[in-house]
Design a protein around this nucleic acid. Structure first.
Lengths: 206, 206
DNA sequence: GTCTATACTTCGATAGAC
DNA sequence: GTCTATCGAAGTATAGAC
């Protein structure tokens, strides 16, 4: 019998990621997670205490991972504009690698964070904190005009998450009432966001 | 006995809007909608056929309303830059007036539109179509540089929806690990987005 | 660690009286 | 149009054998 590629708890986490992203917390079914992970349902309650604890563990891991990636970019010895470029393309590649991230992120925002405990909230906060650090540093070094760092965070990174989460609905619209939705490729959108960020943050404006 | 401010079907729709926005489609409870609307649960199944039909009716109405508002802006005899300003502030006031809209929008995007029939999808598409028309018109009149209209749509209007949907979680973060999140006011963010759009769409860039 | 079987709860939806 | 009562399905979670 071939060893599974991932150990049981990791397989459960991967299956939970897909299930929670597709259906949301309330819509996710523990039975389906078990089936996707090819484990018995009782194993989920053995490794994790409950559906809620499974969900929180998954989000904590993911937010921590994303935050560390942004912090690494913020620590590079580069012009702030280049750091923003890297933050944008980095988040884009992060969501390509972790396809479940946008769905879960959007849902949890809509839920108002009701499923999150303080540890998970702290993990989540590392993402806007790291991005804000880049912006504030650029302002301090007079490479950027003064903007609210959180405004820059929302207007720059929110569209990436939205773009990827909206993939399925965009494909539905493309075959119907909104053909133009299908002509926007991921790379082109990343470039658009990088250009937009450069222009939004530039100290001079024609 | 005082007449209720809204007739029964409209009270049900208003209650459903709040419930679906807070809990999502799967998380919404018909019992709770009935309680919020102060009607008997059976009345919901009498006026609407099912939970799904209630949901679709609500979304169709809301998308149609939002689309019409944007189309009215697109029809104004104004410079394209001013039309974009109005589209941004108009959507911001729309979500202030319909507080349930961002939550439902984000959730339905994350769901991949699985609950939407073709009529509801058509209603949804009027929003990006109207905004794209403004952008394309501005490009044709050489007031904007050439950009992908759908990219402009996503990067301009997505942050507004995100900002308002993220209100509760932002307040949680503000009292903990991310104090800066609380200092961004709605009006200031709208202005930031208007400036960002002006700069992103300008034909010249220093 | 892994399974089967099941207790307990909640939900969407309806029947039927008024 | 409005109510009470309830059915049947589906869900989370656990007990207990191996």
């Amino acid at each position: 019998m071939p060893r599974p590629a991932l150990a049981s708890p990791d397989r459960i986490l991967a299956a939970a990621a897909a299930e929670f992203a597709e259906r949301g917390y309330a819509g996710a079914r523990v039975d389906r997670i078990a089936k996707r992970a090819r484990v018995n349902k009782a194993m989920i309650y053995y490794h994790f205490r409950s559906k809620q604890e499974l969900y929180r563990t998954l989000l904590r891991q993911t937010f921590t991972h994303a935050g560390e990636q942004l912090q690494a970019i913020a620590a590079l010895d580069l012009p702030a504009g280049d750091q923003v470029d890297l933050a944008i393309s980095g988040l884009a590649s992060f969501v390509r690698k972790h396809a479940f991230f946008p769905g879960i992120m959007l849902r949890e925002i809509a839920e108002g964070g009701v499923h999150l405990d303080s540890r998970t909230l702290a993990a989540l906060s590392t993402v806007p904190r790291a991005f804000s650090a880049i912006i504030e540093n650029g302002i301090a070094q007079k490479q950027f005009r003064p903007v609210h760092p959180f405004a820059a965070y929302l207007s720059t990174l929110a569209p990436i998450v939205m773009y990827h989460a909206a993939g399925p609905i965009r494909r539905e619209l493309a075959s119907g009432p909104l053909a133009a939705a299908s002509t926007l490729q991921s790379d082109a959108f990343v470039q658009h966001l990088q250009q937009t960020a450069r222009r939004a943050l530039a100290r001079t404006h024609s």
